[in-house]
Amino acid sequence: MIWHNIKVGFHRLGSPPVFHRLCRVVAPWLWAGAAICAAFGLYKALYLVPPDYQQSDSFRILYVHVPAAWQAMAGYLVMSVLAVIALVWRIRTTEIMAMMGAPIGAAFTLICLATGSIWGRPMWGTWWAWDARLTSMLVLLFVYLGIMGLYAAFEDKRKGARVACILILVGLVNIPIIHFSVEWWTTLHQGSTISFFGESSMDSSMMPPLIWMVIATKLMFGAALLDRSRNELIEQDRRKGWVRQKLGASA
């Protein structure tokens, strides 16, 4: 019985008007949650945490750099799950959500690359180092751009979404391989890779802001995903009755 209810609920989400309403109701709450978590996290990160004894204040970049990097990767996983659902059950709302994840994931990848590069300047003395993590993030950015470009290049959006879903799954297999090969490549080319930060040696007082920021980026991703999906849905269904009705009601 419970299973049946879940199934029905799931199928109802495939209906554009229901999905649209869900996005409209849930997204603001997610944004609000993200704002609260981020405010908490940033306050702690900038004022409460003492400077690192080795990197002094520059390590504070970690609190935006690491959550962004994790979210860039977690976002890809979310897209992969959505892509599988989209390809197997052909649910249009999941197709749209899988596609709308790409620009947000790319945005977080960009944050990660930019802050990593800025962090590298005082720490390594250069803006860019062919560090394994930075390099694989750069490749990840191109994977995201590829997905966005492929989807945008199709006139038939449903077809484009499904083809791009295949690309998402190819990337899912490929990204770990890229990461591993790049790691190997940097250890081959440089005597020793500069270690970013010792995760195990992190002081316990440094952890809470990081956790708050990680939660905040997760909520931001979810909220942005719902916002963008809602717009895409309206744009695609602009000639359909339910959009007309909604517009008539809100106008």
Partner: peptide
């Protein structure tokens, strides 16, 4: 010494978000 780097990073984060 590090403040500009930290603030630019946070700024980029804020702008993109």
């Amino acid at each position: 010494e590090y403040a500009p780097y930290v603030w630019t990073s946070y700024g980029i984060f804020a702008i993109i978000v």
